[in-house]
């Protein structure tokens, strides 16, 4: 598999990262190189092997469904780049 410029553009769009023409030129061979390298996994026979997502084998424990915090909007907003009246502010999204 190779990561051509078109594929880089697509993946940059999915990643929500703006890339310049010059960056695409640079990134495309790098990602292609990494992809070729990781494709050696194809040599490994993984028939009937279950994927391992996490080494923790215990079940997630459930806590009681009760409110444990809240009333802390000031804390939540403390690092916001922009806020007004207890809301995060973003560029206008409705025409």
């Amino acid at each position: 598999m190779s990561m051509d410029k078109e594929a880089v553009c697509k993946v940059a769009r999915l990643s929500q990262i703006r890339v310049s023409e010059e960056e695409i030129e640079r990134i495309s061979p790098q990602l292609t190189g990494i992809l070729k390298w990781i494709e050696q996994l194809g040599e490994v026979n993984t028939d009937n092997v279950e994927p391992l997502a996490n080494v923790v084998d215990s079940d997630l424990h459930l806590r009681k469904d009760e409110i444990t915090d809240g009333n802390c909007s000031d804390k939540i907003l403390a690092n916001a780049p922009e806020e007004v009246q207890n809301f995060f502010v973003v560029p206008k999204v409705i025409e």
Binding site: Q16, I76, N79, P81, V90, K92
Partner: peptide
């Protein structure tokens, strides 16, 4: 760029995300 950290200046939300992360 919405809840914390760096935010780039853009007038469109999608553009703001992409430029902030770039």
């Amino acid at each position: 760029g919405v809840r914390y950290g760096y935010r780039a200046n853009e007038n469109d939300l999608q553009d703001m995300y992409a430029k902030t992360r770039a």
